[in-house]
Every structure is written in structure tokens, then in C-alpha cells.
Design a protein around this nucleic acid. Structure first.
Lengths: 221, 221
DNA sequence: CGGCCCTTTGACGGACGTCAAATAGCGTGG
DNA sequence: CCACGCTATTTGACGTCCGTCAAAGGGCCG
């Protein structure tokens, strides 16, 4: 019964579908998991968007990944219960909580599941590494363009978007924290993208009007 | 027989010690593993320093990790044979090559090894995430200071350094690529650190003269 | 001795941050 | 329905951190 409220969907979570779990609904902007909080639960996003981030003492922060329906939030605390990253809802989030020990047992008992987990870990690792490359070596325009394109690809792959129009609940502050910029500068970059006809933004939706040009900006500039 | 030439040492590699392997010696500055090269071998560093990096089309690059004796270079290609990162020797490197299938079989057969691998993956992930935070949200002084302190901690933990004096074969270009800066700016930062009595550099060795002040700079500035 | 790579230094420029103020959106309560 | 307050967006002026460019040593190896 795909799409029903509270269903676990998405490649990442398929392997967990039959395990016991409980449903939780978190309002927008609320913290799902605090940075140093210990927890036995492994949350999986069923609906809504969330972010995983590190906060710095001066209040700034770096977003490490944007979590969409089907994502485990986060895989890391399958192994390390408290690891210094916080998870925060962007929109209202429906998620399902699994007990860590259940998940680990399920993984070890079935080699096919273990393999899936390994591939998931590898993909996650690669996406953090890509983030590091972007932050270290790409200018602001490129980082923002890549952020948008990456989200577009993920949404499309999961059937959460068709065509160039995407649901886009992120605030400029989220984009800024994800790209290592300030909200003011993100505003200017997005403004330029819109004036140049690369994207259109309206009502929590983003349309990629000129994918080729956007991709060219993303690939190095 | 610890310390003998070609031995596999270090927490990361202990679990592999009895597997069949071959020894390889790579001269300084040579590429150990090309970015898109397919390989069945999992290399483990026994002596010397190396780096794992991503190259951009314009010739710049971002170093993702600095590899010391005992490190697997890299864990990721246990699962994904070719994943777009290249590994390059900084000094002359002695490494041991294991066959991927042997390693995977060994991991699955022994739960204790599997657990060790999970913890290793979690630690690696965390260190890439820390890199992303540094690159996204910290100024040049902080990044360089953290790079030095991180290396100091790792070297000390493995018994490769005692006290404040470290072997330090990195060129300024390596530090620049690791911190997302240019060599010119790294030079200025290191110059300032030396003038301020935080560190001393001579003959491929680095001494941390004022750890407290260095840590204060690292922790946010 | 000569060539190469690395380091150091300075002048200059540009990308991005900071600060500030005006506008727009949006939920809440009257 | 309107008033209000909060948060998000937009814009401009200005500053600074870091990159670029260039040139002059320094160290190492052939």
C-alpha cells in the first residue's frame, strides 16, 4: 500500500519493512535528535524533509545531509549511539522508529541485507566526500547549483518529483548552512539564477528551467 | 614482530593480519591508485604517508584524508571497486595488498571482525564529516591548526610520535589541498604560527610548542 | 654547476561576509 | 476581517579574508 501515511518507503529502508517499529510525527523546525543525545532508536523518514547538521559554538552550523522520505536519519547511529550531529525537521516529519538491536540483528542474520547496508554506507560516505570537495574547492554559484541538482536527482529517483518542478521546502538559511555560505549571499545567488532564467521559485516549489546551463555552472565555476 | 618492514600494524588492519597478501613499495609522489581504476586489491599502508584525494578538471584537488601507517587506503573500495578518488604517496610508501574477496569473506565469517569494521567505517565517516564542517565554516587559521592537531593525535595514538615533536613529511601543497586553501596562503598561516611561537618547523619535523594556544585557534577562529 | 621544486614575500583584486534597513509573507489573536 | 509580531527575503554599502600574480631566494639531486 505505497504512499500510505507512515509507510516505510525508499531503497534505504526496504530492508527494515517487517521489523517492529513505532510511528512519530514531528512538527516543522523541531529537533528530532539532539547532538549528544543517547538513543536506542533508529529513525527512518517516511514523510517530510529534515536535515542532519553540526552546530558550532558561535551558533553557525554546517548541514551534512538533507534527509528525504526513505532516508535513515542517520545511519551512523546504528553503530555509535551519540555522535555529535543533530537532526532537525524542515517540514512536518513523519518517521518510524526502529530499535537499534533489532536492526543490527536483522542485518547480521541476512547477508543480502548486510550487503545492502554496505552499499548504503558507501553511497553516504561518497556524498559527504562530495560535499567536502564542494566546500573546499568550488565557488558559491557552483555549490548552490550542485545542491539543487543533487536534490532534484534524489527526488526524481524516489518518485517524489516528475519533470523539472520539485517540491522545495528549504529556506535560504538551510541552503546557506548546507553550502557553507551566508543567507545573504545565497539570496544573491538564487536571485541571479532566477534573473538568468536557470530556475524559478514560487510557493515552496522550484522549477529547473535550464538544466543544461545549471549543470554547466555546477560542474566547475 | 612489531615494526619489521612490511608488517601490518595499527588498529584498522589488525583484523587482516593472517590473510594472504603481497608487499609493494611505492616511491614518493607516485600514484598508488588512480581515480577510476578498477582493482581487486585492498591496500593497507605499512610505512610512509599517503593521501586520498579528488581531482577537479582544472587541476586543483581536495584531499579527503591523510593516510598513515596502519590505515586502509581506502576502506571504500572494499565495496565499490572504482569510486573516483585517487591515492598518492607522499613519502616512499610500503603497503600490503589484500584481495577484496578474501577480506570480505573474513569479515562476514567472524562477527567480531565485522563489528570492528563497522566501528572503523563510523570513525572514517565522522572524520570526513569533520572535514566538511572545517571547510564550510572555519577560517584558514582554524583549518590549518586542526589539521596539525588531528595529525598529532593520530600519530601519538599509533606510537609514531612521542611528545610534541612529530615527523611531518607534508609539503605546503598537501596542507593547502587538505584545507581547501592555496599554498601561498598556507605559507602565510604557517609563518604566522611560527612567529607567534605556536609551532616550529625544521627538517621534515614539526614541533607543537604551544598546544593550548594552538587548540584555542583550532576550536573556533 | 644547473635545473627543478618548494618556500617566502609583496602588491593587488575579487568573492564572499557583515551590517543595516526596507519589504514581504504568515500564523496568531483580537 | 484586520492588526500585530515574527520570520524570511531582498537590496545596498562597505569591509575583509583569501586568491592571483609575480619575483626572488632556498634546498636537493643530477
Amino acid at each position: 500500500m505505497p504512499g500510505r501515511c507512515g509507510d516505510v518507503t525508499g531503497d534505504a529502508a526496504v530492508a527494515l519493512a517487517e521489523l517492529p517499529s513505532s510511528v512519530q510525527v514531528i512538527p516543522a523546525k523541531r529537533t528530532i535528535r539532539h547532538a549528544r543525545e543517547f538513543s536506542d532508536a533508529v529513525p527512518v523518514i517516511c514523510e517530510g524533509w529534515a536535515i542532519a547538521a553540526v552546530a558550532l559554538p558561535d551558533g553557525r552550523r554546517q548541514i551534512l545531509s538533507i534527509l528525504l522520505p526513505g532516508d535513515i536519519a542517520s545511519v551512523a547511529d546504528l553503530f555509535e549511539p551519540a555522535y555529535g550531529r543533530s537532526v532537525e525537521a524542515v517540514t512536518e516529519v513523519t518517521c518510524r522508529l526502529f530499535r537499534r538491536d533489532d536492526v543490527r540483528a536483522a542485518l547480521v542474520s541476512e547477508p543480502e541485507r548486510l550487503d545492502r547496508l554496505f552499499r548504503l554506507l558507501a553511497r553516504e560516505r561518497q556524498s559527504v566526500e562530495n560535499l567536502a570537495v564542494d566546500l573546499g574547492r568550488r565557488p558559491a554559484h557552483g555549490r548552490v547549483a550542485r545542491c539543487i541538482l543533487h536534490l532534484s536527482d534524489r527526488l526524481t529517483a524516489r518518485g517524489l518529483a516528475r519533470g523539472p518542478k520539485l517540491p522545495f521546502p528549504l529556506r535560504q538559511r538551510h541552503i546557506a548552512d548546507a553550502t557553507g555560505l551566508t543567507t545573504v549571499h545565497v539570496c544573491k545567488v538564487l536571485g541571479a539564477f532566477q534573473r538568468d532564467g536557470l530556475i524559478a521559485l514560487e510557493g515552496r516549489c522550484l522549477t529547473i528551467s535550464d538544466p543544461d546551463k545549471l549543470r554547466r555552472i555546477a560542474d566547475l565555476l
